[in-house]
Amino acid sequence: MTSSPQPVALVVGASRGLGRQIAIDLARANYTVVVAAKSTSNADKTVPFPPNPNSSQSTISTVVREIKEAGGQAFAIQVDVRDVAQVDHMVKETVRLAGRLDVLVYNSGAIWWSSIANTPTKRFQLMQRVNPEGLYATVQAALPVFERNGWKGRIVVVSPPIYSRFFRGKTAYAMGKVAMSVLTRGLAMDFVREGHKDMAITSLWPATSTESAATEMTFKNDPRSKADLRKATVFSDAVMGILNTPAETVNGVLALDEDFLRKYCGVSDFAKYSVVPGSNPRRIMPKELPVLEVAEQDDEGMRMDSTKIRSKL
């Protein structure tokens, strides 16, 4: 085991797009970064280098090379998040290689946007396995590490605020992504209830369309649509902002990148993030979102704990 004097971040789903940018910017902020995903390659033979960050040429291998050539420290771990054993190995290998774990970012995701009638069950199952189940397995594997750290750490999940319009036209996808946000809210409540004041989990979602592998496919036949895109740095800057904001402030928050940067990081000019200079990308998320708390928020009644009930059987 190599003990890193730097904080260590594990970015799951870091081969391209948002995940790659988050990994690059964490390294620039003096984190040792462990990049994890399914795709690997021989980075030494990748030409031109660096590759298009939203293409299949960008892999965890090329991301590690990018970070190292810029003077940072990084490791690559191949993982299929649908396999719990591989997820457990990923977290253990992170600690073995880097000596610790301070930040976990879950960016892995499977996408299929269509009506329920046009979403086959196999496609639905794939999204659930990669999105909420992959996140759940990763969090389960990481929590014992954070416990050994004295419950000090951060988790950032790429999932949306919860509101009804998000379900329209992509219900099967929304079911999984909203479940990830439910995990964020629920785990945040656990942290508070158990007195883990230095732990926080936050969900983050783009307020506008952002450069990624998904938007690369969507807009490749319509260059004019790029005027509605922001660079991935807007999202990674928001991630860094979350990590630099007190845990109690961001724990359980379902944030939008633009709104978080405005409110907590003092950003008012977003021109530098526009893919097309001078453009004003269309906001795709609501300006106001529903409040999820209810008046009886703190009234749990008689709380059931299945682990305690089962132990008595």
Results as ranks from 00 to 15, higher is better:
T32W: 12
G278A: 04
G252Q: 10
V253W: 02
G153S: 11
L18E: 06
K220E: 15
V81E: 05
P53I: 03
T138L: 13
S274L: 03
R82E: 14
E288Y: 06
V234G: 08
I284V: 15
W205A: 06
R165I: 05
K287I: 05
R100S: 12
M285C: 09
Y31M: 11
A74C: 06
V84W: 00
M189R: 15
Y273W: 00
N107S: 13
W205S: 03
Y136G: 04
R224A: 15
A142K: 05
S209W: 07
R283T: 07
D269I: 07
V156P: 08
E293S: 12
I22E: 05
V103G: 06
V87K: 09
I111R: 14
A172S: 12
A27K: 00
R185G: 13
I22H: 04
Q125E: 15
Y273H: 02
V178E: 03
K38V: 02
C265V: 07
G134K: 00
L126G: 01
N280K: 13
D237L: 08
T46I: 14
A207I: 00
A14K: 03
L26Y: 10
T202H: 06
K68G: 05
N280F: 02
G72L: 12
K45A: 15
T202M: 09
I201N: 08
R283D: 10
D299G: 00
N280L: 06
A200W: 01
E194M: 11
V8C: 13
T249Q: 11
